[in-house]
């Protein structure tokens, strides 16, 4: 019984990403979309918080949003999986519920 969490805010603008990973249960998936993808880069002030959960929570980023913002794939935080919209759908279908951290 797992949850797909979506976060669509930059972690440098709101606390949504940090709140999300603080509430996600082991086995859940956190997908960063829209401005949320800024959280997926390495070397930021939220990187450590994400890395700390990377073993128990699956961290994903919506590739099209990442690419749209010109973010460099080689600077993506280790352990983050990039998915396209089809992958987003698959995550939503395979988890038991979804929760949007608006």
């Amino acid at each position: 019984m797992a949850t797909l969490h979506t976060v669509n805010k930059s972690p440098f603008a709101t606390g949504a990403l940090l709140s999300c990973i603080a509430h996600a249960k082991d086995g859940d998936t956190v997908l960063m979309i829209e401005d949320g993808v800024y959280g997926a880069s390495s070397g930021t002030n939220v990187s450590d918080a994400l890395t700390a959960r990377a073993g128990s929570v699956t961290l994903c980023v919506l590739g099209p949003d990442f690419a749209a913002r010109g973010l460099a794939t080689d600077r993506m935080l280790d352990g983050i999986k990039s998915v396209d919209y089809a992958g987003f759908v698959e995550l939503a279908a395979s988890n038991d519920r979804t929760q949007a951290w608006l």
């Binding site: 019984m1 249960k25 519920r97 929760q99 949007a100 951290w101 608006l102």
Partner: peptide, 8 residues
């Protein structure tokens, strides 16, 4: 984690 539907 115990819900069916989450409205945000």
């Amino acid at each position: 984690a115990d819900q069916d539907v989450i409205l945000s």
